[in-house]
Nucleic acid binder design. Structure first.
Lengths: 163, 163
DNA sequence: CGGAACGTTCAGTGCGTACTGAATATACGA
DNA sequence: TCGTATATTCAGTACGCACTGAACGTTCCG
């Protein structure tokens, strides 16, 4: 791999690390992001100069998260991976799910904790309603975007989600 | 602290840990979230049964991130902390900033990497435009929400962000 | 001027975990 | 049936980092 691409994949590794993911997962993702065709585990291991074990584990992990997709070719025993076509939607959905966990915890606290202060209760309710509002808004915006992208493709303008 | 509150703060610790933050930071946040008044470092250390050093470090860290706010009382040498009044907006802004870093990396890759495939280039452009669209949408929704909360307070309905 | 009462900093420790190399499992072809 | 080529799993290692107790700096009061 050329040095510029290596810099990019390393950068992705750092960004993933900041999100609590293993660095190799990020480098793997970056690699596939700028790759035309799906890549096999061996290709990825050699490109990134890491062990096949790491590639196997991390690729499977990312596939379970919905970041990557495993693709099999008939008459070929290799596993190939590519970035998930609906990555953007999945990323948004994942973020909403994480926020939801916080909101659930806050809701449980409001209902089950011995909170005397009405101010605190109002504060917690405020977070819950704010989250509900933003979740709705983000979901709606995501739908509008996907509809727009759909139309864009129908009119011949590629939207980067070509299968 | 009663067991129910301890369960809640521990839960917050786990949620923060999943976001790449120290567990104690989460427990600290949970503690202040259900506390009526700002708390001193000693109070927090005793409530959570952790060292003062950890409380000091993590509280300052969270304050720098904008999650907590340090509040000083005249004639009192203690440092008090409370959850930031504009926490929700800050959380959203932080998330947008993180996504922006990804998008910047993708944009740099599209411009500076030797990418032959037009399909890859279109894919990268797709992510960039999708992010720009969602960032706009989220920003607008956030403004609408804050305006609505403002009106709500003006009409006497508390929104959990009182002074 | 001591001397509390704070907050901060620092060396030390333990734990989690990412990564590796080798062993194992599995499918396919000769 | 054996050998080969793939993916997965596992024990081991090394590294990072969260947390602690003690030392340090600072500010205010007697």
């Amino acid at each position: 791999m050329d040095t510029a691409t290596t810099r990019f994949t390393d950068r992705m590794g750092l960004l993933f690390e900041a999100e609590g993911q293993p660095p190799i997962a990020g480098r793997l993702f970056g690699c596939l992001l700028v790759s035309d065709d799906p890549c096999s585990l061996d290709e990825l291991a050699e490109m990134l100069s890491v062990s096949k074990a790491s590639v196997s584990t991390n690729a499977r992990r990312l596939a379970e998260m919905g970041v990557l997709e495993r693709v099999c070719r008939p008459g070929d025993r290799h596993d190939y991976y590519r970035v998930a076509p609906d990555l953007f939607r999945r990323t948004m959905a994942d973020r909403l799910r994480r926020w939801q966990r916080f909101t659930e915890a806050v809701g449980d606290a409001r209902r089950m904790l011995p909170i005397r202060s009405e101010r605190v209760r109002a504060r917690l309710r405020g977070y819950e309603t704010a989250y509900a509002y933003m979740a709705d808004a983000i979901g709606a915006a995501l739908q509008r975007w996907e509809r727009a992208a759909e139309n864009g493709r129908a009119h011949g303008r590629a939207a980067g989600v070509r299968r």
